[in-house]
């Protein structure tokens, strides 16, 4: 409550007083002057953005911020992470409190057009699913009529559930709670039969429950949830930086450039690799950065595939398969335009 009112007030004051200057000066220049990138992330969701016991953030969304910081400062450590709840996130971006929102946020039309922000790409293709306790004996979401459903407030999830049940002609009882830990605790205590969220979150949160094996994720995926980083509207250069850093990571995977071999790859004879790593042409200029911008980003976090496997894939506890997030040539949806 306090936080939302504070954020609201901050939004009013900032929108009223400082929005002008923020726009007048480019975000890139502002970030450079400040000496660090301010990145809005999730308050804690394993694999996407979560702090460890020493306060170091890691995750797929966090890696993107580090890559952007590396592209700008040649130092992936120059990021300040601002943990945000689902309902604080847009206000924080609109008001200029953060430079980029990398917080498993679904790209929707209204958010992209009338909420003062633009999405820079998709770093995770997700979809909404349902998790239930095995003991209920439910095999399909179609059997859920009459169930109580725990959902976190301020998400597209809340609306998708309503749509899905209305479409199926089923009823349900919502239990809507502000923060993920309390939502999960309520689910765990049996307050609701179902916990619903993006499938990636379901897998991540299942690990935090007492005995993960007691819970299953139902096969139905009821929505498209393309998750990606967002920036403020009205600063095309800044949007380009975030977009192309993401594309650079995806392209790097395509050319098999890894965190380890990136130095060697600089001498590659492949012109596409040369252009990406800045040994040929000067593509950094177009986004206001040095020519080694992509090299720095890849050096910092590895290519998209590496980042994926390390944070949510086989190298992590989540063990999520690449699925839709594989490169297009491997049957997935990740596809980055060429650098030329």
């Amino acid at each position: 409550m306090k936080s939302i009112l504070t954020t609201g007030l901050a939004a009013i004051v900032l929108a009223a007083v400082t929005a002008g200057p923020v726009l007048a000066q480019g975000t890139l220049q502002k970030v450079k002057d400040r000496g660090q990138l301010v990145c809005g992330v999730n308050t804690g969701i394993a694999g996407f953005s979560a702090p460890d016991d020493k306060g170091n953030w890691s995750g797929l969304d966090v890696d993107l911020c580090r890559a952007v910081a590396a592209a700008i400062f040649k130092d992936p450590a120059k990021v300040k992470f601002v943990p945000l709840t689902a309902k604080e996130r847009f206000t924080a971006l609109q008001s200029g409190e953060i430079d980029v929102l990398s917080r498993n946020t679904t790209w929707t039309m209204s958010r992209d057009t009338s909420a003062g922000m633009n999405f820079a790409g998709i770093n995770y293709y997700d979809g909404q699913g349902f998790m239930v306790n095995k003991a209920l004996g439910v095999k399909s979401a179609k059997e859920l009529s009459g169930a109580s459903i725990c959902v976190q407030t301020g998400t597209t999830t809340e609306l998708n559930v309503a749509d899905y049940f209305r479409q199926q002609g089923m009823t349900y009882k919502p239990v809507v709670i502000e923060k993920l830990p309390e939502t999960l605790a309520a689910y765990n205590a049996g307050r609701c039969d179902v916990f619903t969220s993006d499938a990636s979150q379901l897998y991540a949160t299942r690990l935090t429950l007492g005995s993960p094996a007691d819970h299953i994720v139902l096969p139905e995926v009821i929505s498209k949830e393309p998750l990606g980083p967002a920036v403020r509207q009205g600063d095309a250069q800044w949007g380009n930086i975030v977009r192309w850093v993401l594309f650079a990571l995806i392209n790097a995977e395509e050319f098999a450039i890894t965190q380890e071999n990136v130095d060697k790859m600089k001498d590659s004879t492949n012109p596409e690799v040369k252009r990406l790593l800045g040994s040929e042409g000067d593509f950094g200029k177009g986004v206001g950065l040095d020519s080694d911008w992509a090299y720095q980003a890849i050096k910092a976090v590895g290519n998209y595939g590496e980042s994926f496997e390390r944070n949510v894939g086989q190298g992590s506890r989540l063990k999520i398969s690449r699925g839709q997030n594989a490169l297009w040539r491997d049957g997935g949806l990740q596809y980055a335009p060429p650098i030329r």
Binding site: A86, E178, A186
Partner: peptide, 21 residues
């Protein structure tokens, strides 16, 4: 809002704010 009772702040300053931005 913290414990999921749908009061004004929860429903209006929470969900509605988020849906409408």
């Amino acid at each position: 809002v913290a414990i999921g009772y749908p009061d004004l702040v929860h429903v209006f300053a929470g969900t509605v704010l988020n849906q409408t931005s």
